[in-house]
Structures are given as C-alpha cells and as structure tokens.
Design a protein around this nucleic acid. Sequence first.
DNA 1: AGTTATACCTCTAGGC
DNA 2: TGCCTAGA
DNA 3: GTATAAC
Length: 298
Amino acid sequence: MRAKRGNPNRFITQTHSRKEAPLPELPEVETVARGLRERILGKKIRSAKLRSPKHKTENPRNFSSLLTGKTVTDIERRGKHLLVHLSENKTLWCHLGMTGRFVEADSAYKLDKHDHAHFVFAKGKSYTALAFRDVRKFGHLRLVHTDELSTLPEIASLGPEPLTISSQDFVALFSARKRVIKPALLDQHILAGIGNIYADETLHAAGIHPQTRCMDIDKTTLQALHKIIQKTLKKAISSMGTTVDNYSGVNGEPGKFQSYLKVYGREGQPCHKCGAPIIREVIAGRSAHYCEICQSIR
DNA sequence: AGTTATACCTCTAGGC
DNA sequence: TGCCTAGA
DNA sequence: GTATAAC
C-alpha cells in the first residue's frame, strides 16, 4: 500500500505499515475550517438531512427544519471544535472525533453508510453539497444557540489556543503542575487542540521524555517546547494536516504533514537523529512514541 | 487533584 | 484462504 | 477523540 521504497526523501511515508486514522487535531480541524469557508461561507442552507438518528446529534427531529433557510455567516475553529455560525442566532457545532469528515456530495454522489448527515448550501447559482461522515461515531453535529456557546461546558472549559498563547503564559500553564507532560498536553482543559500525533512529535523535537513531570521541566525547555509547538502546528497547517490513509480536506485532498513525522507511527524504526529504535509505550491509556536516547529529559 | 480504566463504534493490517 | 485480534 | 466513573 504505501510507499516509495528506496526514496530517501520519503523516509517517513514508507515506514507506515498500518492503516491509521488521521486523528483530527488542531491542524486538521483548521484545514477543514478553511475548506468549509471556501465552500459554504455566505451560502444559505437549502436542505439539511439527518440520516442516522442514532448518531450523537441534538434536535434530531427538527434538524432539517431548524437549519433550512439559515445562512452561514462565519466559521471558526476553537481547539478541535468547528463552529459553523448561522444566521438567526444558530451555530452548527461540530466535532470530528476520530474519523469525522466532510465530503463533497453532489447529486451524482452515492451516500456512504457512514454519512450521517447531508447538506446543500447555495448562493445564486453556486451550490455546494456536503455529507458529514463519521465511521466511528465519536464526533458530533449539534445545533445550538450562538449566544449560549460560551456557557457550554465543552467549549467554556477549553484551555487557550496553542498558536496564540504567549511564551510566558505557556510556561506558567505547565511549570507548576505535578502531572506528566504527555497527558497534560493532551488535556484540552489546559491547552486546546493538541492530540496524540502532535504531542508525540513536539515532545520529540523538544527532547522531552513523555513521562516527565511538568514541574521537572526547566523554564528554558518549556519555552523551547512552546516555540516547537507553534512551529509544528503552523507547518502542519500549511501542509494541510496529517493524512495517513484518509483525507483531512473537505474535498478529499490528502494532507502532507505525514512525511514530516519523526516518531508517531514509527515504532521500532530508527530515530532520524540518533538511529535508536523508536519506542511505543502506553502512557495514560494512549500510545506514546518516543526515542529514549534523544528524549532524555525526565 | 490527578491518575487510570472503561465505554462509545467500526474498520483493517497483520499474525496464525 | 480465512479467522481473529490489537489498535486506530 | 472525549466524558465519566472509580481508586
């Protein structure tokens, strides 16, 4: 399946021996938000259908009538949440979970069994039809009142955005905690948007062992981690996210960041820095990938 | 407070 | 070839 | 991926 044996420039791609979910994290969700802006911003919802009533969704009965006729006024990302703001104080609040995605689904499109909703947006002669697909059903689509968004616990309790937090605030966020760094990075209440891939990648780049307690990491290293996180997320966004055997873009465009992965999904393969095999170890219930030589800070 | 396990759900690579 | 399970 | 219950 994958890749390019013998191509030194594709050293990462060829190492993936398994089909892995893309795990929508901040860069992937940002990519989707941008794709949605291009396609549906300013358009009016002509139809909205929910085809899997079992899927986590609010107002399943009224879904169609509540959405039809509303206009998409703004699309924002907060952590891994997608907020599609509509006219009349409505917001379509989406989370992609592990496998959620939007796919273009015009009249020729054959709905997949995992397409839980279908939308048609229009402005003048310009139509866009999208399906919301979510194989594992960990994501959701919910219709909420825009002015009540900030009262929703899932949104209100989110930590700051990693791309805009200052270095000082970042250091303050972690330096006093007893917790282990990897789960702390994954904790959306502390910082919003980082998931398993970028936690592992940034810790490797910063030379920090994933089991290190936050308070044991000196300030200089935390400052370095802050920089690395911003750099990595920006690069991933400009690469349109990480795609392994799936698509992160709205129209199915694969991301390109997977070719830069240095530890994630590379268990047993040589570290690109030192050659030691990459370790995979379950930490706090999730796979952590790291190099025990390069990530000696602990 | 912080940690860990468990549940939610479907699919696929890889082992046997 | 197919069945089964770990892990996404 | 996340929420929740349980040490």
